[in-house]
Structure formats: C-alpha cells, structure tokens
Simulated scan of single mutants.
Amino acid sequence: MSTTNYLDTPEGRRLAYHLSPGDGPCVVFLGGLKSDMQGTKAIHLQAWAQARGRAFLRFDYSGHGESSGAFEDGCIGDWAEDVRAAVTRLTQGPLVIVGSSMGGWQALLLARAIPDRIAGLVTIAAALDFTEDGYWRRFTAEQKRALETVGHVELPSDYMEPYVITRRLIEDGRDHLVLRDALALPFPVRCLQGTADTAVSVDTALRLLEHADCPDMRLTLVKDADHRFSDESCLRLIETAIAEVLAGRV
C-alpha cells in the first residue's frame, strides 16, 4: 500500500504515518482511542482515495500503533497536538477530515483550530466529550476516589484489553469539550452512527446535530450497525459521505 514514515513533532513525539500523494483536498483519517492506522476503515479509505487520485493521510497518535510513547501517558490535548502537527507538516491546502470515534472529537478540535483549511468533515460514531459525559459521569464514587489516590482506573473493553483511564485524561478532557460552547462548522458535514453502537449512543450524534452551527449537515443512522462501522455496507456509506462532502464544498 505505502511505506511507513515518521514525523517528529515540536512536542518531542514521533508519529508514524502513511501519506499517499494525489489531488486535493487531502482526505485525512483520524482513528479512535487505542485504535491505529492499520484498521479496516483506514486501509480501505486509503485504497479508495488512491483509486481516485486523491491525496490521503493516515497516522498513529502518540501512544498508539507504531508511534512513540505509552497510551497511558497521553490525553485529548496531546493527541490534538499530534493531529495539528501531522496536517501542518504533511499536507497543504484544503482538507477533508474523516474522524472515527475519538477521531470525531479530534476532527472537531482541528476544525476549531484551523477552520480555513477544512473543506469538509465526516464523522463515524463520533465519541464527543466522552471523558466527561461517558467516563466521569458514569464513574462510581470508588472509581473517582481511585483517580484521586492511585491516578487511574481500569475499564473493560468490548474490543481489546482494558482501558487504563488516567486522572490526566479526565482533567485534560475538560479543557477540550466541544458540545458546551458555540461550534461553527462552515463547510459540509456528514455524520454516520449505528443504532447498535454500545460505545457511543445515538443521543451523542443527535446532540452534535442540534448543537453545531452548520449550513450543510446531515446525520445518517444505520440500523443494527455497531461501533466498528466497518462491514462492507458501512464502508460504502463512508465513501458516499466523503464524496458528498467533496461535491458540496465551496
């Protein structure tokens, strides 16, 4: 497919990435928490972009995949810095951002940071503000005490080994929430959400739809699709969403 390269960021982290040359806007895939750039959606979309002569970037956040660092040392703000470093150093011109799960949150943070470069956005089961509205809100009193005393808690995962959730991840997340303050998205946005997703609720997708100020925003609910959103029919829906964003950009 392509060769893994590495980018050293201003913060001293080393990010692994794959970049395919082509026409713009460049499609940038942002993966989920503890996911990596070798996932089904990332690989499929790179092949889709290459077949159409479209520039494409996928990469691993620090503490993920082939990039430097430990997952437990990272937080939303660190990974947002990684995203900005990757798109600033590796791409030029307009971007179409495709954010899956936590990558949806990161996509909105990027849109807030560099709105002039965003030509469109596609979210897939976007896990917005999950550190506060998911983890912290559901933590028991015992788990909250453990964060204060031990500095972390472990949570089971349906997809891999337990998540180690640190006090820093929770506290830093509060500095990067996107569903509280005004959220201007002045470009086409397509949101995809499965109704059988046990990690991100339909309610979260509806909150984004109601909250964002966007002239061209659509939410597609897919009956019985789960959080992976990576079977053949779901992949086709992602392709269609990207194509719509590209066709509708100003």
Rank of each mutant, 00 (worst) to 15 (best):
E210D: 07
F187N: 07
R228G: 14
H211M: 11
R218G: 07
D213E: 13
D224G: 00
A184Y: 12
L219M: 07
M217D: 00
T195D: 10
P186C: 08
R180N: 11
L208C: 09
E210W: 05
L206V: 15
V200F: 09
L209N: 06
E210M: 13
L221I: 00
P186R: 14
D197C: 10
R180V: 09
A196K: 01
A199T: 15
A225P: 01
V200Y: 04
P188N: 10
V222F: 03
G194N: 02
C214T: 10
C191G: 05
K223N: 08
Q193I: 01
A182P: 01
L206I: 15
L206M: 15
L179G: 12
D216C: 14
L183C: 15
A182E: 13
T204D: 13
E210Q: 05
A205V: 09
V189D: 07
R228V: 00
V202R: 02
R190N: 12
L192A: 06
R207H: 15
L221Q: 07
H227T: 12
T220Q: 01
D181T: 11
R218I: 07
F229Q: 04
V189Q: 07
L219F: 05
A225T: 00
V222N: 02
G194F: 01
L221V: 06
R218W: 04
A196R: 04
D224C: 03
Q193P: 02
C191Y: 09
L208K: 05
D203G: 06
H211A: 08
A196S: 08
H227S: 02
D216L: 14
